[in-house]
């Protein structure tokens, strides 16, 4: 019985790295550069497109030109008080932190969706960086 328990424990320990693969977040890497714009566009459409568009406020605010824009400053969108309090501008690193945990950055804000994968975040941010701020 003891042997069975010991072997079971070994098995559990051996399996843990596989079970946690993709769940444990990688250390925060700089979101600056290196992302794949094409993949980022597909990811943006698929992962963000339920709530966001580039040019129109929907469930979430529009995103064209978001990098360099003041946080919570898009015309015509009713931001939560929590996000209004954040201040500053959206930088790639800040967006990276936001996508890892919007409720950590602005508890009580309206976004809860996270993108745990570092590479996916980098691709999405690379794509958003290609969108200029002019109205379409």
């Amino acid at each position: 019985m003891k042997r069975l328990a010991r072997e079971g424990l070994v098995l559990v320990i051996a399996v843990i790295p596989f079970l946690t693969n993709g769940i444990v977040q990688a250390p925060a890497a700089s979101a600056q550069g290196g992302g794949d714009i094409g993949r980022g566009r597909a990811l943006y459409d698929g992962r963000c497109g339920g709530c966001h568009s580039l040019d129109v406020n929907r469930t979430g605010p529009r995103h064209r030109g978001v990098i360099g824009r003041r946080v919570a400053s898009t015309d015509g969108y009713d931001y939560s008080p929590a996000l209004r309090r954040v201040g500053g501008v959206w930088t790639p690193d800040r967006l990276d932190a936001w996508l890892q945990g919007p409720q950590r950055m602005a508890p009580g804000s309206r976004m809860y969706l996270t993108v745990p994968d570092t590479n996916q975040r980098r691709d999405i941010i690379a794509y958003l960086a290609t969108t200029d701020g002019s109205e379409r």
């Binding site: 698929g46 992962r47 497109g49 339920g50 709530c51 409720q103 809860y112 969706l113 996270t114």
Partner: peptide
């Protein structure tokens, strides 16, 4: 199709919260 994909991702992406 795009809206359904976005909705699916919105649900799966928020379950952990």
């Amino acid at each position: 199709t795009r809206l359904e994909q976005g909705a699916t991702n919105a649900y799966t992406g928020q379950v952990a919260a």
